[in-house]
Design a protein around this nucleic acid. Structure first.
Lengths: 231, 231
DNA sequence: AAACTTGTGTGTCCGCCGGACACTGGGTGT
DNA sequence: ACACCCAGTGTCCGGCGGACACACAAGTTT
């Protein structure tokens, strides 16, 4: 009856053929997860459609069934990596400790995903998670006497500082940092850059945090001056 | 006598042939200038070897006789665009007005070349002009009682703020800005982002400068608090 | 004057990128 | 039994940075 010898393929090669395809379905979430994995391990530069697709064992064009473009992929993975914004209402101690807490949480997230700064610069779509974090910080400034624009400027100032200090990208932005070569160049031209040479020399091997603590304290002090003047 | 009819090519096609090649020699400076022209007009993304080479009427590979890589080209054009650092010693009024002046000059330069922020992020070579600007700012903080690390952190904080507010790249970094679409989305989800919605509403059409003035004042106030405490 | 060297620009090729577009093959509704 | 649908495939394109072999003019050496 069976015109094409049914069962043959199972007997002769079926076992390890294209398989029973237990393959999970491709979804936006799985794509985003794979892209995040790539970015965490090899940097945002390594996130290409091909690379991400390979990680999922599909062709790159398969991804386009789920995301419209690479920009959208980056947007989606960014939203996913940023995660739910924190609720700071229970943090005791007023606006200042709320902002400190917010910064700590932000830094933790960005530390897990060092590519976030690079992914969140330039014109792009903004997702609810990202807006939520901003909401969180702006809310922390309620009751300070600052007006709307000031509250937003303050948050921008603070998050900009986080961005600057967290970007491994920004690491090279200033000519000190631990870079041995540059230090030696600086020493070589010390008569041309005396103040810098002196300042660099006066930095007794403190484990530099890219100026994070210093900048945070100055920004919060500066905000405090303004807020106090409003009371 | 003339075995190959001399003058023929001049008569028949010589006039507009390869020409007498009054072509200027290719130099690093001319290459950098052309690249800057492209970047100013079409953004750093438009700076490709081919594009720059076309502007100079040569093949892209010709450029590699003068620069080792695209990264080097970008480094060279950046140094050239940044220009000579300012001498702030004659600015009256102490560290604060010197830093304000420095910031103004920096902003002017960056305004002329909006791609500089993008070109100066990430691991890269740093040139003497760039180091010179830093030297300038660090020198402005002499006599403030801040130690070397603090002076450098302060300059990093300030230049980071300039970077954040100047980057057209960073323009999209925060979810307010004049972006109509986002404002409407924000309004649509106002119950989810009440603080942000309120703050955005309270921003009476002031011509927002990306928080430049606000941040500058807070940073300088914060520095002043620290410096006063050292006196 | 002829031969060699050197330096500057050319032409061709490669692998990788994002993306357009036509196709296919299995699953489902009728 | 059939048609339709649609997730995933294969092929192609233009543009990117860059390696490498080559062409060719201008000295410089013999």
């Amino acid at each position: 009856m069976a015109s094409e010898s049914p069962g043959t393929d199972l007997l002769w090669g079926g076992r390890d053929k294209p398989a029973r395809r237990p393959r999970l379905a491709l979804t936006v979430d799985r794509i985003a997860a794979a892209a995040i994995e790539v970015a965490d391990a090899e940097g945002l530069g390594a996130v290409s459609m091909q690379h991400v697709a390979a990680k999922l064992d599909v062709t790159k064009m398969a991804l386009y069934r789920h995301v419209a473009s690479k920009a959208e992929l980056v947007a989606v993975m960014t939203e996913s990596a940023i995660g739910e914004p924190p609720d700071l209402r229970d943090v005791p101690g007023g606006w200042r400790s709320r902002l400190v807490r917010w910064s700590e949480l932000m830094r933790e997230t960005w530390q897990r995903h060092p590519w976030i700064p690079a992914a969140t610069t330039g014109e792009r779509a903004t997702g609810p998670h990202e807006v939520g974090w901003t909401e969180s910080a702006v809310a922390a400034l309620e009751g300070t006497g600052l007006d709307g624009g000031e509250r937003m400027d303050a948050v921008f100032l603070l998050s900009g500082h986080i961005r600057n200090t967290m970007s491994s990208a920004t690491a090279g932005t200033q000519p000190w940092t631990a870079d041995k070569h540059l230090r030696s160049v600086l020493h070589e031209h010390r008569q041309r850059f005396p103040a810098l040479h002196a300042a660099a020399g006066a930095t007794n091997g403190s484990p530099r945090d890219n100026g994070w603590e210093f900048g945070l304290d100055r920004i919060l002090d500066g905000l405090e001056v303004l807020i106090d003047s409003r009371a």
